[in-house]
Design a protein around this nucleic acid. Structure first.
Lengths: 199, 199
DNA sequence: CGAAAAGTAAACCGATTAGTTTACTTTCTG
DNA sequence: CAGAAAGTAAACTAATCGGTTTACTTTTCG
């Protein structure tokens, strides 16, 4: 029974352990995959007892859902500074998103989009995880939509979708090929936007 | 010791069992993922004893590598007819590849590119599997390269890479979103090619 | 203070995992 | 035919899996 306290901290240490678990799981899931990562390893890396783990996350799949939402919130966090800048046009912000992503993809530690990887392992098996993956991609699309809507273009939603396709494609290829992208991605993004500009 | 027989069948029943195993494994890996699919289930679905399985494939990962090559050969097989047609220009063949892929992606049974899924589960864990995934994507890129080279365009290799990015992006999004692609992909492919056409 | 809440460590559960081995049968072929 | 090759079915291993339980300790807070 949750006491409706009017204190500042309605969630005290509780969320510290919770966050430890999620962060450790996020790292392990990213590096080694979901099925391949056992809960014993997660709890060891998180410095948390198994019992505590199962209080916060009754099943491993519940933890996976939480990790996917953490992944999204993390991504959003990293974008807020960029999106808040008013010295950049929306077009420049879009370009910046792709350049950031490009740098991330070229990192040796890049293991692909966690939501895509999760879908590969749980598609048709766990609706909650499937939903979390869709939420992630929907949010990504929404970021582009908000940006393209402020652009002097026709069909901004279509343009946003094309940008998402481009981003996903780069990521998937980078994950498999593990070599620097041979094409000028900035040019490609600009071409896409130019193609939608009002004549 | 293989007898160099001049008979018609240099590979008798041997490869029949092998193919049964690969085909069953391919279906199961595609639908349920790699780690989540146990070897017992594979052998049951293939109507093959466990011992036979382990003669053809000493480890599960060996089987996965074989399945990935099967996946590639299958894809190639399905493309040969299209690529052999001489009533179609290379530009039309490229468009046709994307339309075929689009139809595949919209299928409810689509579970993403097997090579990308494999990379998500084995990246940094098994070099042989990683290599098989790269071979697949390299081959895909090569298909586009052969087609763009016969096109009146500048930098055909760059164009081929862009086409691959587009194809991967569509696949990844389709896998997660499971809804029809809202944009005109034919138009997008044409725009890409037009952007490379000699002026 | 003192009790509830939140934590730990470790034993334990049944099921499942990849992989091995044994004993027997079928099929091909010189 | 005879024997090698290729097959089956099933028992078995040792490890690991997700998840539960028990006994005990720490922390929080009215």
């Amino acid at each position: 029974m949750r006491t409706m306290t009017n204190e500042i901290e309605a969630v005290p240490k509780k969320s510290i352990k919770r966050l430890q678990i999620i962060e450790a799981a996020f790292k392990l899931f990213t590096e080694n995959g979901f099925y391949a990562t056992g809960v014993d390893l997660i709890m060891r890396q998180a410095n948390v007892s198994k019992r505590t783990m199962y209080i916060y996350f009754p099943t491993k799949n519940d933890l996976i859902v939480a990790v996917l939402e953490f992944y999204r919130a993390n991504y959003e966090q990293g974008l807020t500074d960029l999106l808040a800048r008013n010295d950049l046009s929306n077009r420049e912000k879009i370009i910046a998103i792709f350049e950031d992503a490009g740098n991330w993809f070229e990192n040796r530690q890049f293991h692909g989009c966690l939501a895509v990887n999760a879908m590969g392992e749980f598609s048709g098996k766990d609706p909650k995880i499937e939903n979390a993956c869709r939420v992630f991609k929907t949010w990504e699309l929404d970021v582009f939509r908000k940006l393209t809507k402020g652009l002097p273009v026709m069909y901004p939603n279509d343009l946003a979708f094309k940008l998402l396709v481009l981003l996903e494609g780069m990521g998937a290829i980078a994950q498999v090929m593990k070599q620097p992208c041979p094409i000028d991605i900035r040019q490609m993004v600009n071409d896409l936007m130019d193609g939608h500009c009002v004549a």
